[in-house]
Amino acid sequence: MADIEAARKEFQRIDADGDGFITAAEFKSALAQGGDWNVTDTVAEAIIKTRDLNGDKVLSFDEFWTYLSR
């Protein structure tokens, strides 16, 4: 997904509370909505951790985009 506008829309979809950050809970919920019901809280937290560049345990759009555009 190299299109930044598509990435912004996807980020906003996942960021359920609209605070500008994706939490592990929001990520897990988005995956469940997509049909992946097997993701646990622990797995969602681990996925966020691998993409979280500043260690604050949430994803900003910049971190989300950095991961997508690698």
Results as ranks from 00 to 15, higher is better:
Leu53Met: 15
Phe27Met: 11
Leu68Tyr: 13
Asp52Pro: 08
Asp52Trp: 05
Ile47Gly: 00
Ala24Ser: 15
Arg13Glu: 12
Lys57His: 09
Gly55Asn: 08
Thr50Lys: 02
Asp15Gly: 07
Ala24Gln: 08
Lys28Asn: 04
Asp3Phe: 10
Gly35Phe: 07
Ile4Ser: 14
Lys28Pro: 02
Ala44Lys: 02
Gly55Cys: 11
Ala6Leu: 09
Arg13Asn: 10
Ile4Cys: 13
Ile22Cys: 06
Gln12Cys: 12
Val39His: 06
Asp62Arg: 12
Glu63Arg: 09
Asp17Tyr: 07
Ile48Gln: 00
Ser60Val: 06
Thr50Ser: 06
Ala32Gly: 12
Phe64Lys: 03
Glu10Val: 09
Leu31Ala: 09
Glu26Gly: 01
Asp56Cys: 09
Asn38Ala: 12
Ile22Asn: 06
Ala46His: 06
Trp37Lys: 10
Gly18Ile: 13
Asp17Gln: 04
Phe11Asp: 01
Asp36Gln: 15
Arg13Val: 08
Ala32Phe: 14
Asp19Gln: 08
Asp56Leu: 08
Asp15Met: 06
Ala46Glu: 10
Thr23Gln: 05
Phe21Met: 12
Lys28Thr: 06
Asp36Ser: 12
Ser60His: 06
Arg13Gln: 13
Lys57Tyr: 03
Ala6Phe: 07
Ala2Ser: 15
Lys49Ala: 02
Asp19Ala: 05
Ser60Ala: 09
Ala24Ile: 04
Gly18Asn: 08
Ser29Tyr: 08
Lys28Leu: 03
Ile4Tyr: 10
Val43Pro: 01
Asp15Tyr: 03
Glu63Asp: 10
Ile22Thr: 07
Asn38Gly: 15
Ala16Phe: 11
Asp19Leu: 09
Gly35Tyr: 05
Gln33Leu: 14
Val43Lys: 09
Val58Met: 14
Asp41Ile: 00
Glu26Met: 00
Ser29Gln: 15
Gly34Thr: 06
Thr50Phe: 01
Glu5Asp: 15
Gln33Ile: 08
Phe27Val: 00
Lys49Asp: 00
Tyr67Pro: 00
Leu68Gln: 08
Gln33Asp: 15
Leu68Gly: 01
Ala44Tyr: 00
Lys9Gln: 10
Ile48Ser: 01
Asp62Gly: 13
Val39Leu: 09
Asp36His: 11
Leu59Cys: 04
Asp3Pro: 07
Thr40Glu: 00
Ala24Met: 11
Val58Pro: 03
Lys28Phe: 02
Asp3His: 11
Ala44Leu: 01
Ala2Cys: 15
Asn54Arg: 09
Trp65His: 13
Phe11Thr: 01
Asp52Lys: 04
Lys9Arg: 14
Ile48Lys: 02
Asn54Ala: 09
Ala24Glu: 03
Leu53Gly: 12
Ser69Glu: 14
Asn38Ile: 01
Val58Gln: 13
Asn38Pro: 05
Lys28Asp: 01
